[in-house]
Structures are given as structure tokens and as C-alpha cells.
Nucleic acid binder design. Structure first.
Lengths: 225, 225
DNA sequence: CGCCTCGCTTTGTTATAACAAAAAGTGCTT
DNA sequence: AAGCACTTTTTGTTATAACAAAGCGAGGCG
């Protein structure tokens, strides 16, 4: 009798069935995003393998994935290097953000629930707290959480990953230039403006707030070069 | 005696110093873009290795790169499958194109030379020829050449690769639905409109032409579902 | 003192083998 | 004849070894 077939695998806490290369990918991505590697630094497969555990094969998988996302680069002699960026590159990345992020926000607007707003409020509070504390990593994480709580509320599974890819590419550099610029950021509350626009359902105002937020970040970055 | 050290590598015709995984990546990407694989089809590392030459390791590198570009997907049981797409997915991809491509064209406009225009004219002629001939693959290749001759004239190395990624994801499906829609495409000459806008330096008209061109493609695609 | 050359080390690349899980084929039972 | 359990093959994953080229340091020549 086919009562209940089986009980496949409920008691999984840490998923040991996840492939090693995926864990290595996540670890490397997190280190990139928090600026653990300096731009221009070169990484070696064997060093990463012995540091993160495992052999060169899974590290290789992770590195190629990151390379496809432009989070890592291969040099002319096939060396794995953390990408560098000049001011033109920053502007280029920011222009892509200005293009994509207001659109993602506007498209998410009809799908935003009170749960999303709560998440954004929390992230914003944590961000301001980290800002006052001088916690750069915490600031970046909270800022990321705010933006993507908004974008991911929408149905688009195309441009949101694109935006995510842009943010990852910023990781190594935000860490370098934000400490000096952190004092000048609280003058204008773009996030609060965005939240107000969301509550009134004002799409144009939301677009403007996100655009201004990105513009503030750009201003901070090119000011230091 | 150290007369002449060595003879490094001048007589290279086919670059044998290029890594195998890169050749495999290009081969796989080309097959995807021309619809050689059916959506939903599953690929195996060993089969690809023996078919394209080499071992599983370089194939693995190529597959992970394609996976990061969403040109391939890994199934729930870690099987390599070529992605499927429903109408919502097509619309989503097209919305991203409408967002990115007019911008890329507008930004490239000040950098367009007569050489670029010649390339675009040739591509356009080849496209119309392929269209009349019923050559779907030739049509797709020429259309691709036209658009990216335009986009790549500009200085942006961020959004153009994004657009390229979107086009690759379309490959497996254009092949399926274009044969029936090919007869209705010559009514409006968006490419000629774009070229006219370029020669007069009219940015708004160029944006409009590219937007209309993408819209035509979308109309052809969702009409068949 | 600067530059080049030689030798050693480290690097990416590729092939191969072993292993667990999934798929597929096979034969039996009902 | 259809469904089910078992066996066999195929699959992705990982580790490891061998190889060529690039880095890199020391030592010698100008």
C-alpha cells in the first residue's frame, strides 16, 4: 500500500550535499564583496585551494564563474587577478547602475508589501547606525540589503542579477574609498525619500530617489581619486 | 653558445597557445547561439569532451562560464541542461534589451566612423539577403553583426557585454520561432532608419529606431506562442 | 652600479582515476 | 501487459599527477 512513500532528507542543517565548488564560490564572492582582496592582487589556484579547503578542481570552477561575472580577471599570462578600476571604469559602472536600478525599483513598486517595507526600514536603520559607528563593512552590507530588498520584490529575474553583478564588481573599491567619504553621506536621506515615494506609490519620485542615491555614491567615489 | 636563444613562436597560424577550455567555450557558445541544442536538452561532460576533444576538466571550465552567463543551467540533480523559456521569460529579456540597447546606441553615436557605417551597411545587406533566402542562421548572424557593430563603436565596456549576454540567451529560441515569422519582418526597415539617424546625428531618432527594432522582434516571438 | 642570464619555484592547464548519486535498462511479479 | 525492484551504466564531483610556461631570485658580466 502506498501510504507515504519515504522521508527523504528533512534533518539537514548544514547541507553537506552541496558541492564544494559552490561553497568556494560563495566564500570567494563574499571576500571580494567585502574588499578582502586588493585590486591588482593576483590569486593562485593552489593557494586558494589550501586556504579554503579542497583541491584545485573545485576552486577552478568557482574562479571561472567569478571570471564570467567580471568579479575576477585573467591576466595576459593567464594569471588570476583581482580587477583594477580607474575613474572611467567607475563612471561606466555607475552609468549602468543609473540605467538599471531606477527601472528595477519602478517595476518592483506594485509588488511591495509591508514586509518589504519593514525589511527596508531595518536595513536603513542598520546602515545609519553603521555609518555613525564608522563600520564600513556593516554600512555596505546594510546598503546592499536595502537596495535589493526593494529590487527583488519585483518579478524581474533578468535585470536584478545584472545589478547584483555590478555591485560585486564594486566590492574591492568601496572598501578603499569609503572611509574618507563616510562623513559626507548623511546630508541627504535618499533612502527615506525612496520609502516615502513607495508609500505614496509615486513611481517618478522613486526613480528620482534611486537615481540620486546612485549619484551620491558616484560623487563620493570620484571625489577621492 | 648562446647565439640565438630560441625561436619563440612567430609561425603561428592557428594559435595553439590558446587554452583548450577557451576553444571549447567558444564552440559551445556558438552552438548555443545558433540553436544547435534544443531547450531542455541535457548535456554531459564526458560526451562534450569526446565530441569537442579534450578531457572533462576544460569542458568543465567552459560549462561553468556559460552557466554564469545563464547560457546553461544546472538542474536540481546537478545535470547540465540548456535553459527553457516561457513567454514571460521572453518578455523579461526583451524589456532588458529595450532598456540597454537604445542607451548603448546613443552612447556610441559620437564615436561612429565611416568604417562602422560600412560594416553596418554590409551586415544589413547580408541580413536582407539571408532573409529572402530563408537562411535563418545567416539572418541571425547578420542581425547580430549589425547591432554590435553599432554598440561596440562606443566606449562602454559594461553594458555592451550585458547586451551580449542577453543575445546568447535568446539563441536556442530564435532558431525555433523565426522560420515562421521571417516573412513579416521586411515591412519596416528599422535598420535603415537607424542608419539615417546616425548620419544626421539624431540621437532621439536612433533610440527610437533601436527600440522599434527590439519591439518588432518581441512581436514576432510572442505571436507564435 | 645596472642589466642580463641561468636555474629553481610556482603557476595554469590537462588528463586520469576513484567515488557517490542518479539515470536507465532488465527481468520478475502480479 | 503493466508496475516494481534490482542491477548496470552514466553522471557530476573531487583529488592527484604530469607538463609547459611564467615568475623570480641569485650570480655574473658589462
Amino acid at each position: 500500500m502506498t501510504l507515504i512513500t519515504t522521508d527523504p532528507a528533512p534533518p539537514e542543517e548544514t547541507d553537506t550535499r552541496a558541492p564544494l565548488h559552490e561553497a568556494i564560490y560563495q566564500a570567494l564572492r563574499a571576500r571580494l564583496a567585502t574588499g578582502a582582496f586588493a585590486p591588482g592582487e593576483s590569486l593562485s589556484l593552489r593557494a586558494l585551494a589550501s586556504e579554503l579547503g579542497g583541491s584545485v578542481t573545485p576552486v577552478r570552477d568557482a574562479v571561472w564563474r567569478l571570471t564570467a561575472e567580471h568579479a575576477l580577471t585573467i591576466g595576459p599570462t593567464r594569471r588570476i587577478i583581482v580587477p583594477e578600476m580607474d575613474e572611467d571604469g567607475i563612471v561606466e559602472l555607475m552609468r549602468a547602475r543609473v540605467l538599471l536600478e531606477p527601472e528595477a525599483a519602478a517595476r518592483a513598486l506594485p509588488f511591495i508589501t509591508s514586509g518589504h517595507i519593514a525589511t527596508m526600514l531595518n536595513a536603513n536603520a542598520a546602515m545609519n547606525s553603521a555609518l555613525r559607528r564608522g563600520d564600513v563593512v556593516g554600512y555596505m552590507a546594510s546598503n546592499h540589503a536595502f537596495h535589493f530588498a526593494l529590487y527583488r520584490a519585483g518579478p524581474s529575474d533578468v535585470i536584478v542579477p545584472m545589478i547584483e553583478g555590478i555591485w560585486v564588481r564594486f566590492g574591492p573599491f568601496m572598501r578603499l574609498m569609503f572611509p574618507q567619504a563616510v562623513n559626507e553621506l548623511d546630508v541627504s536621506d535618499r533612502h527615506g525619500d525612496a520609502l516615502a515615494a513607495i508609500e505614496t506609490g509615486d513611481e517618478e519620485r522613486l526613480r528620482a530617489a534611486i537615481t540620486a542615491d546612485v549619484g551620491d555614491g558616484l560623487a563620493c567615489m570620484i571625489k577621492k581619486t
